[in-house]
Structures are given as structure tokens and as C-alpha cells.
């Protein structure tokens, strides 16, 4: 099966007063229909810029996608003109954001916003589009969808708004859904509902999902493949089971060691007063990266080579890639 989304060699930079910021460097991945790929990393690792690059929503200037291709069903989005790209957004590739309040228009009813999308992309009549909007709200399990369609975003709770945004994103049945921290602003019980919802809709529509998150728990729960990013580059990629069972790169290994777990309830081996493993230091500034591996200054395994040369991203084990001289 050919992947629905194929990203290769994507690099995005920002021209700033403080110099060139290489936000995303040489990032490649592909996602099949119905599959979820998670991109994990901490703030400043380039995961959100990757997501925005896929949608070609990078503010330009100061941003610029300098190389690579983003193919959806074989069409390279980076080669399209802006009007052509506008047609792709929503119909072939859609995005949901962390804070639905800022992504929804506060002056338009939720139903109308969804209907506009449908009219724009499917050329549907007003009545058909309106019915579709209500149907979509019903689909994302919003109770009383016909009444809710006439409400404004501020009249809804955070979870409800996120559902409305998902309804809008999926209204035209896009092939690819880019979800940027879709549950970070939500409470855990609501997060669980939304993750379930995305999963169910994905199965139903066969959507390929790119999930951007910093939460390893969310990754383990919903993703099939994982890309770990650090300082703008991919440092590891594997199937989710592989990555959590034996991470190769010291950064994801450190991350997994540094998170406390809700464990004893499930009979896991968690001794209560154990110190968390720390990753010392902090994320480097993207306009001032060290010459070698960007993680070397924080890495306990780093040697002279790590500080001098950027490690290649290569196959280390079957279907398990990493960029590390020591792995």
C-alpha cells in the first residue's frame, strides 16, 4: 500500500534578526491510510513547525520552507500555487490545533463555520452544507447537534470546542489530519474522550493522522509509529512498541526515564521514593546549535566524535532508525 502522506527532506528556516534559525532540518516520514504517526519532542524541537510546514502555514517571511517535498496521494504540496494549496487545505489535508478558541472564529456560529468549509470544497448548496454540519457535529458526539450548530464558540466548553474543531477538520473527509497537541489544553477525562473520538473517526474515514505531542502517554496510547525530534532534527523513528521497549537514542531514553508514572495502581514496579532520572541542562537555541550532535552537551555517552560531527539518521535495527554515534 502506498502511503497517503510522504514527507521527505523537509527543511524549514526562519530569517530572524538574531540570525538564521533552522527550525526543521531534513525531516522525512510517511503515514499510511488509517495510521497514526506521532511526532514527539519538547518545546522548540520543531514539531509544530513541521506540522505547519505540512499545511504550508509557515508565515513567509520570516519563515521559509527551503527544501523537501510533502506528497499527499502523490501530489507535492510544496509545488502547488497558493490558490491550489488553498483547495487542498481542508479537503485533502486538515489541521486541528491545541487551543480551539483561537482557531475558531468567535463571531460565527459553529454550524456556519463547518458549512462554509463544505460549501467551499465540495461546492455543496447552503442547505446541504448546513445538514452536513449538523451531521458532523452528531458524528463527533456533540449532544443536540442541531441546537449546538447555532451556538458560538464561547458558548461551548473546551472539550466541546475541540469536538467542533474536529468536526470542521473532518467535514470534507481529508486524507490527512494533522493534530497539533489536540488535547494538551484539556482535562484528563476530556482528553481521553477526545483521543477515543479521533481514533474512532480515523478508523471510519481511513484518515492518516500526524499527531504532534509532548506527552509520551498519549503517544503510547494512540500512535502506531513514532518520530522523536530534538533541536529541529529527527533523532529516532520506530514502531511505537519498539520505541518504548528499547529506545536507542539517549534522548528518548532519557525522556522515558524522566517521567513519573501512574504505576502502582496497575501493579507496576514503581518504588515511591525513587529519584526521577534527569536530563541535565536544557534545549539549545536553534540559532546557536553545537557543531556536532545537538544533544551531545546533555548526553552522558557523548565523546569527541559526538561533539564534532552530526550523526547520520540511519537504520540501526529492523525498522528502527536513530541518529546517534553511540547506538
Amino acid at each position: 500500500m502506498a502511503p497517503v502522506l510522504e514527507v521527505s527532506g523537509l527543511s524549514t528556516v526562519f530569517h530572524t534578526r538574531r540570525g538564521l534559525v533552522r527550525a526543521v532540518q531534513d525531516v522525512s516520514f510517511s503515514v499510511n491510510a488509517g495510521e497514526t504517526l506521532a511526532i514527539v519532542g519538547e518545546s522548540g524541537c520543531g514539531k509544530t513547525i513541521t506540522a505547519l510546514s505540512l499545511m504550508r502555514l509557515i508565515p513567509q517571511p520570516p519563515g521559509e520552507i527551503v527544501s523537501g517535498s510533502v506528497k499527499v496521494d502523490g501530489t507535492d504540496l510544496l509545488k502547488l500555487s497558493e490558490p491550489e494549496m488553498r483547495k487542498m487545505r481542508g479537503s485533502k489535508i486538515a489541521m486541528i490545533f491545541q487551543e480551539p478558541m483561537t482557531a475558531l472564529n468567535p463571531l460565527m456560529t459553529v454550524g456556519k463555520q463547518i458549512a462554509e468549509m463544505v460549501m467551499l470544497h465540495d461546492g455543496a448548496s447552503k442547505q446541504v452544507a448546513r445538514d452536513r454540519a449538523v451531521e458532523m457535529l452528531h458524528h463527533v458526539r456533540i449532544p443536540e447537534p442541531a441546537r449546538r450548530a447555532r451556538e458560538y464558540p464561547h458558548q461551548m466548553s473546551g472539550g466541546m470546542r475541540q469536538r467542533a474543531m474536529i468536526a470542521m477538520a473532518l467535514a470534507c473527509k481529508p486524507k490527512v489530519l494533522v493534530a497539533d497537541e489536540p488535547t494538551t489544553a484539556l482535562d484528563v477525562t476530556i482528553q481521553a474522550q477526545i483521543l477515543d473520538l479521533i481514533g474512532d473517526l480515523q478508523k471510519e474515514f481511513g484518515t492518516a493522522v500526524v499527531l504532534i505531542t509532548h506527552d509520551l502517554g498519549v503517544v503510547a496510547e494512540v500512535a502506531q509509529r513514532v518520530v522523536v525530534m530534538y533541536a529541529g532534527r529527527k533523532v529516532e523513528e520506530a514502531a511505537v512498541g519498539d520505541l518504548f521497549a528499547h529506545p536507542l537514542h539517549p534522548y528518548p531514553r532519557g525522556l522515558l526515564g524522566s517521567i513519573p508514572r501512574v504505576g502502582s495502581a496497575r501493579g507496576l514496579d514503581v518504588s515511591p521514593d525513587e529519584r526521577l532520572r534527569e536530563i541535565t541542562g536544557m534545549v539549545p537555541a536553534l540559532n546557536d546549535l553545537p557543531p556536532g550532535c545537538a544533544f551531545a552537551p546533555r548526553c552522558s555517552l557523548a565523546d569527541a566524535k559526538c561533539h564534532a560531527q552530526v550523526p547520520p539518521f540511519e537504520l540501526k535495527q529492523p525498522d528502527h532508525f536513530a541518529a546517534c554515534w553511540q547506538a
Binding site: A192, D215, G217, V218, E221, A245, R261
Partner: peptide, 16 residues
């Protein structure tokens, strides 16, 4: 109980 059940666990081997 509901809160605990909702927390995503960083372990894909655990099928919740």
C-alpha cells in the same frame, strides 16, 4: 477511578 483510567500510560504494551 475515572481519573486514573483516563491517564494515558507511557507504555504501549498495556492495553487499557
Amino acid at each position: 477511578e475515572a481519573l486514573l483510567a483516563a491517564v494515558p500510560l507511557p507504555d504501549p504494551a498495556l492495553k487499557r
